[in-house]
């Protein structure tokens, strides 16, 4: 099975800082890592390869330093890595990003399955995976927590829903996005790290993937971030203590104050 895993390099922090003037992420002084959800996607790709054979290729779009994320994926056991880097890609929203990644995937000789993390921890949109599937006109299932079956005829997956899970069959080629419940990602091995250091990372520009320049980067992005803010932290609830009778009285009083009753 020929597997592609789409990954993103993100700042290593759960407390993302935003520059209030430019509305972009503050990256200075923050270490970059593979988006944690993408680690589950890589792990699932590697496990499928171990079961069914084939190769795993990681692709990322980003600045030249995003190559580091690809090398980390090679240290985990990925066969090939492709970096999409070009000034024309800069400022892309999820639509332009989906287009760019889809064009790169089209350039690969054969792709059976594309795996993505459910979302990136910096942007948190969860749109790029499904977006790529639409651009490629292939089926997709998001929030996959288990792959029950994977063979030449297709995949049977479990999609995590709020009230349980859906079991879905889909033919190849297809795309899935995965949640962290799907597996426990492995740590890099010494041989992997040595291979990652020596490996050649393929680099493609806009011209290499035959992309329409109008659909790339800022120019190809119909959405723009006007303002980014953190929602005010939720205040904790009030605990009504005391004897049951007192509690009931207090509760009724509160409800009256709030004009609920």
């Amino acid at each position: 099975m020929e597997i592609v895993v789409l990954i993103k390099q993100v700042p290593e922090t759960t407390d993302v800082k935003i520059n209030p003037e430019t509305n972009t992420l503050v990256r200075e002084g923050v270490k970059s890592i593979i988006n944690p959800f993408d680690e589950y996607a890589i792990e699932e790709g590697l496990r499928l390869r171990e079961r069914a054979g084939g190769t795993v290729t990681t692709i990322t779009m980003g600045p030249p330093q995003a190559e580091q994320a690809l090398r980390e994926s090679i240290a985990l056991g990925v066969n090939n890595a492709v970096l999409l880097t070009d000034r024309a890609f800069a400022g892309a929203d999820t639509l332009a990003t989906s287009y760019t990644l889809a064009m790169a995937i089209k350039k690969l000789p054969k792709v059976d399955l594309i795996i993505c993390g459910k979302q990136a921890v910096d942007g948190d949109t969860a749109q790029v995976g499904p977006g790529v599937a639409e651009k490629l006109d292939i089926p997709h299932v998001s929030y996959v927590r288990k792959i029950d079956k994977a063979d030449a005829t297709g995949l049977t997956v479990e999609r995590m829903m709020e009230d349980g899970s859906d079991i879905i069959d889909l033919p190849l080629p297809c795309l899935i996005t995965v949640v962290k419940e799907i597996n426990t990602p492995r740590l890099p091995s010494l041989k992997g790290k040595i291979a990652a250091k020596k490996a050649v990372v393929t680099k493609w520009t806009a011209a290499d993937i035959l992309a329409d320049i109008k659909k790339l980067g800022m120019a190809g992005s119909p959405t723009q971030v006007k303002k980014v803010f953190s929602p005010p932290p939720r205040k904790g609830g009030e605990n009504i203590c005391g004897e049951p009778e007192e509690q009931a009285k207090l509760l009724v009083q509160k409800l009256k104050e709030l004009q609920v009753i």
């Binding site: 740590l187 010494l190 790290k193």
Partner: peptide, 19 residues
């Protein structure tokens, strides 16, 4: 050496994250 530093990093991650 670079390889020795890799060994330290790998062992440290196993120790801290798994053990």
């Amino acid at each position: 050496t670079e390889e020795q530093q890799m060994i330290v990093d790998i062992a440290r991650r196993i120790a801290q994250e798994k053990i």
